[in-house]
Structure formats: structure tokens, C-alpha cells
Amino acid sequence: MRHILEIDSVRLLFGDRLILSDIYLKIETGQVVGLLGRNGEGKSSLMRVAFGTLPAEKSVRCDGKTIFEAYKQPHLLGYVPQHNFIPKSMTLRRIFRERDIDFAAFGKDFPEVQLDGDTVRLKDLSGGTVRLIELYTLIRSACRFVFLDEPFTHISPVQILKIKAIIGEERSRKGFLITDHLYKHVADLSDTIYILKNGKNHLVSTLYDMKESGYIG
């Protein structure tokens, strides 16, 4: 069954400064939506507003039904923020078990990362491997929609390709919203790309549009 997540009527102010207004985003399961924009344009804020953890005026709907705090429905929406977020004291086995994901499957997807899930804790790993595990567990989770905020930061080029392939596998049953400054990877994955500028989102379809918007030189 196809599901649709819509976000609109967003109005976010930090003090007197208007960050977001006139936003309309529609994400369907089976679709990847890219969100690009310069630093400070409100990409992460928009994700957090939709996720329900940043208070703002908004309307978020799934299949036409209004949702006030999407994160309270963990099977609806998962969010990987741009910073590390899994407690460092957790063992890998536990991190995967809590998400009902097979740890052995991770070893098959990333044979270069051979770890003992029972003894290794997140604090024992490099920043790149931590990021990889955070991404993997949310992308493979049972959520209908997944928001990825700068997913490719700290990830090696070969692992970026694998993560893109895994998103390609998962997109048949999920919808993705991705933002990252590695815009070529985002463009590769996305069916639809929006650029966020001056608090509004603009649909772009070509590299020329991105140049016109001032996002790339």
C-alpha cells in the first residue's frame, strides 16, 4: 500500500527572524525526496519541525490524517539527525536488537566492518563507523518514512555507494527525505529535489536550476 506524508503551512521564527514559511513537501513511499539549500536556510529545522521535536506552526499529514508529533509514532517516521545520537555505552548487538534488525545482515552488507556485537560498544568505534551504524539501523528499520540529515558526512566514498544501494533496496516500502551538501549523491538518489531558499522551498529539476537558485556556483 502506498502512503503519503505531506508537510505544509510551516512557519518558524527564531526571534524576529523568519526561518521557514510557505513550505509544501510531499513524500510518498517508494520515493526519495532531496532537500538542498545553503547553510542556515532551515533544512534541519524543517526536518525537526516535521518530526515534531521543534515547536512551530505546521500541518503534517499522513494519508490525509493530521499528525501533531510524528515521532510519537515510531513506525511512521524515523529521523537521523546530523549529529551522533545513539548512546555511546550501548553494545552493537543491543542497538540492532532494539530496532529488530539482524546484526549479521550488517556484517554481510559491510564485510569490511567486522565487529563483535556482544562486546563492542559504540564508544569503541571511529566516528565514521558510528555514523554508518546510525544510518543503517534507521534506514533498515520498519518506519514508513525516514528523514536523513547529512547522511554522507564522515562516511567513506565506498560506503556512501553502499548506503545509496541500501536506500535503493528500502525505497520500495519507504519514503525518504534526504539533505546533504554532497548534492550529487542526493541528486542521484532523488525523484524530486527541492531547494530551500529564503524560507521557501522551490522545485528544481536540473543542474541549471540549482545554479540559478545560487546553491551551486
Binding site: 518530526f51 521535536t53 508529533e69 515521532y71 510519537k72 509514532q73 515510531p74 524515523g78 529521523y79 539527525p81 549529529h83 551522533n84 545520537f85 545513539i86 548512546p87 532494539e98 534507521l138
Partner: peptide, 13 residues
Amino acid sequence: RHEYYYFFNFGLS
């Protein structure tokens, strides 16, 4: 505070 997002992703406020 960053680790709150781990718990948010399980629906815990």
C-alpha cells in the same frame, strides 16, 4: 541533549 533523538525515534518524549 543529542542523545534524546535516540529515544525520540522509539516514540518516547
